[in-house]
């Protein structure tokens, strides 16, 4: 559920420069055993909308959507802070959350303070459910063990043996995890060293880093072929939470992997010193 490029028939706060003012939402989710708590906080600066909410003619809405489970639900409040609860049995994997202010009833001759000069002097008929302000979107992964700040690489990428005896590694982005397929010879060598702590940085730098950077590029370019895969959605959440959406993919990949080059070189030095 991403921001859609919609041309509204009336001024909407948060849509380009339609209206002066501000509407922001901050959001946290807590995964419990049986339910998920959605903690939302709203910050609004616009006289008209503040008044409409006071009069209950408009509400803040938190709109939750989970494409994996055919789930969509709207929660509404007139409070600037509100917690909503949903059962943990109704969502799975990637959950999108959108924030809006919507009319609860027909607002005849609607006009809003601070509207762009293009709208000045015009009045509009707004219906119940119509959007009055856009507060952005976020998303989370409905899985207790998933931490977008410290993601386990294994939740995104798996290394396995391919079909060729020798040759370059091949990447399969078409499944729910990214599969790096090593030749039989490479996989045999990889299997011998993969558990060693000092080697983790080397493996991350040489095998995982280029693949992750490529995968991040696919996410940033909103690749249509892979965007429904779990790894894509997880990576999207990781990039958003770590503030990496505007970064170069190779830099982002290094940050997600927590400095693989440094860990690689340190590991190699450690191994060399141990050999001496």
């Amino acid at each position: 559920m991403k921001a859609k490029n919609i041309s509204y028939p009336y001024p909407v706060l948060g849509n380009d420069d339609d209206v002066e003012g501000k509407f922001d939402a901050s959001f946290k989710h807590m995964l419990k055993r049986d339910n998920i708590i959605l903690k939302s906080r709203f910050s609004l600066k616009n006289k008209t909308l503040e008044r409409l909410i006071r009069e209950k003619k408009a509400v803040y809405t938190v709109e939750v959507e989970c494409p994996s489970t055919f789930y969509r639900k709207l929660f509404s409040t007139i409070e600037t802070e509100a917690d909503f609860v949903l059962s943990s049995t109704v969502v799975r994997e990637h959950v999108s959350v959108g924030f809006f202010i919507r009319a609860t009833e027909t607002l005849a001759e609607y006009e809003i303070t601070g509207c762009h000069a293009d709208y000045e002097g015009f009045k509009f008929d707004v219906g119940p459910g119509d959007v009055l302000a856009l507060g952005g979107y976020t998303s989370f992964i409905a899985e207790k063990d998933f931490d977008p700040m410290q993601p386990a690489v294994s939740s995104l990428i798996a290394i396995k043996q391919g079909n060729k005896d020798v040759g370059p590694m091949e990447i399969d982005y078409s499944q729910d995890k990214i599969f790096i397929k090593l030749s039989r010879k490479d996989h045999k060598n990889y299997s011998q060293i993969k558990g060693q702590v000092t080697i983790a940085g080397v493996l991350h730098s040489s095998i995982v880093l280029p693949v992750l950077a490529d995968a991040i590029q696919l996410v940033l370019s909103e690749d249509e072929e892979t965007q429904e895969r779990h790894w894509f959605r997880r990576l999207e959440v990781i990039l958003r939470h770590q503030g990496l959406e505007g970064e170069d993919p190779l830099i982002s990949a290094q940050k997600v992997l927590h400095g693989p080059i440094e860990r690689c070189l340190s590991g190699l030095v450690e191994t060399a010193e141990a050999d001496e």
Binding site: I6, P9, K73, L74, S76, F100, R102, G127, P128, V131
Partner: peptide, 13 residues
């Protein structure tokens, strides 16, 4: 539905 969310409406609406 891109502009209006019908969840705020009554059954009749």
């Amino acid at each position: 539905l891109s502009v209006r969310n019908l969840s705020l409406l009554s059954r009749k609406g």
